[in-house]
Amino acid sequence: MSAPAAPAPGAPVVELDLAELRDDPYPAYAELRRTAPLAWVPSVGRHLLTRYEDIVRAEKLPEVFSSREEGSLLLRTVGPNLLREDDPVHRRLRAAAEPPTRPRQVRDLWAASFERTAHQLLDRLEDRGEADLIADFAEPLAAANLALVLGLRTASAHDIADWSRAMMAANGNYADEPDIWLRAERATRAIEDAVAEAVDAVTDTPDGSVISSMVHAADPVSPTEIQNNVKVVIGGGVNEPRDVFGVGAWALLRRPEVLERVLKDPAVWKRVFEETARWISPIGMYPRQLAQDHEIAGVTLPAGSRVALVIASGNRDESVFERADEFDPDRPHRPHLAFGGGPHFCMGAWVARHEVSAIAWPLVFSRLKGLRLAENTPDRLDGWVFRGLTSLNVTWQTP
């Protein structure tokens, strides 16, 4: 399957500046949805598919929109992995890795430890009266929880967070910056060493972790497959819960009337989570490659064509979500695309939902009294392939 680095016949060509997309991609996405829902973007080297209904359609056709993209940035970063495989290989790897991340296992195996870690982090912060809740809380919480679920016994939360940042930067390195590739190579070598130690530990003593599940899978998984798929999980497993936590907390602190209602009814935290994931999709797009000729959004794409499913755009599609650019946890429910769909629905979705909506947000807002955004330290949203706050500077009343 060749991959022509050119627009499909009849596809509009739209020039987009990557720096502008990083700053705020949503105006460009709105224009694409309106005028060119499938467009070739030279700076990205692929067609962007931006309307909700077209993205959903593509996700339901994995035999056409293949995950096995030639030259994928993710493949270059971590090697062959379940996100860049189609069935039956994808099904085998997912069946081996997924059991520890299912809702019941999250509740029974991991929830108590997640809560204990959150309390420990808040114990260190409570007397300070100020913090960056991304660097000081959300990222170390997500990283520590991920190390536990994966079974990486010798990796610290700091290690996991560093590795995740390095690999996610490489996965979005469309500008091909050499320093980013170098950082990613160092991170992946360190992960391979940590996984090898974990495999040795659970071979005779299973511990319920993802690595343990893969080691003892009924359908064998090779050591290299375990290493590569742990790399993939470390990427999304940190940035998704970290960024949903940060953006959701930031949005609530800017809308105190909504925060007051949530605090009176903790059941609303779940709606806040889903709305935050829709409003600012932590993973904004992912690539596919056409396995056969196919017409979509008025354009016939030849086999081999590269496409990006821009789920951040689909989640702002005004034909599906009324007032789509607004943060509104009370909006009527419509399924968002933030965790993907079809066979590749995010394996860690239930972990993220529980650690953020059931633990992190309720504890932060209950323990840090009078929590408010810090003055004169504006927080900035950044990114388009992956998007979140670079910081969340807050103050509160000390005990």
Results as ranks from 00 to 15, higher is better:
171 N>T: 15
138 A>H: 02
126 E>I: 15
197 E>L: 14
336 H>I: 10
179 D>R: 15
177 E>C: 06
195 V>M: 06
26 Y>T: 04
79 G>W: 08
206 P>N: 01
239 N>W: 04
164 S>M: 09
245 F>K: 01
87 D>I: 06
279 W>M: 04
311 I>E: 07
277 A>G: 06
35 T>D: 14
237 G>R: 01
45 G>C: 10
381 L>Q: 03
59 E>Y: 04
138 A>C: 07
256 P>G: 03
315 N>D: 14
228 N>Y: 12
30 A>E: 15
397 Q>P: 15
316 R>N: 06
352 A>W: 03
179 D>I: 07
347 M>Q: 13
20 E>S: 07
322 E>A: 04
67 S>Q: 09
50 T>Y: 11
301 L>R: 11
386 F>E: 09
17 D>I: 09
355 E>N: 02
251 A>P: 01
89 V>C: 05
209 S>G: 04
27 P>H: 13
281 S>T: 15
335 P>N: 07
334 R>K: 11
215 V>R: 00
49 L>Y: 15
220 P>I: 12
203 T>R: 15
274 E>T: 13
14 V>R: 12
100 P>N: 04
19 A>M: 10
285 M>N: 14
293 D>Y: 12
149 V>H: 01
14 V>M: 10
12 P>T: 02
375 E>P: 08
279 W>D: 00
42 P>K: 00
355 E>I: 07
93 L>F: 08
63 E>I: 04
36 A>W: 02
358 A>L: 09
315 N>P: 01
205 T>V: 07
82 L>S: 14
250 W>L: 03
264 K>C: 10
161 A>G: 02
266 P>D: 05
189 R>A: 14
31 E>G: 12
299 V>C: 09
11 A>C: 11
50 T>D: 08
177 E>I: 14
189 R>W: 07
132 D>A: 12
305 S>A: 15
200 D>P: 15
309 L>C: 04
308 A>S: 14
143 A>D: 02
285 M>W: 13
303 A>I: 12
262 V>E: 11
254 R>N: 13
328 D>W: 08
281 S>P: 01
98 E>Y: 06
70 E>V: 05
204 D>W: 05
132 D>V: 05
170 A>D: 13
82 L>I: 14
98 E>C: 06
57 R>T: 11
44 V>W: 02
99 P>D: 07
275 E>A: 02
296 I>D: 00
287 P>Y: 01
198 A>C: 03
242 R>D: 00
372 R>P: 12
353 R>V: 00
41 V>K: 06
256 P>V: 01
217 A>T: 03
289 Q>E: 11
327 F>P: 00
61 L>N: 08
4 P>K: 08
325 D>M: 05
370 G>A: 10
250 W>P: 07
169 A>H: 13
184 A>D: 08
30 A>P: 06
149 V>I: 13
180 I>G: 08
238 V>R: 00
221 V>M: 09
276 T>Q: 07
304 G>C: 09
263 L>C: 09
260 E>T: 05
266 P>C: 04
238 V>M: 00
251 A>R: 08
113 S>R: 15
249 A>G: 03
229 N>M: 11
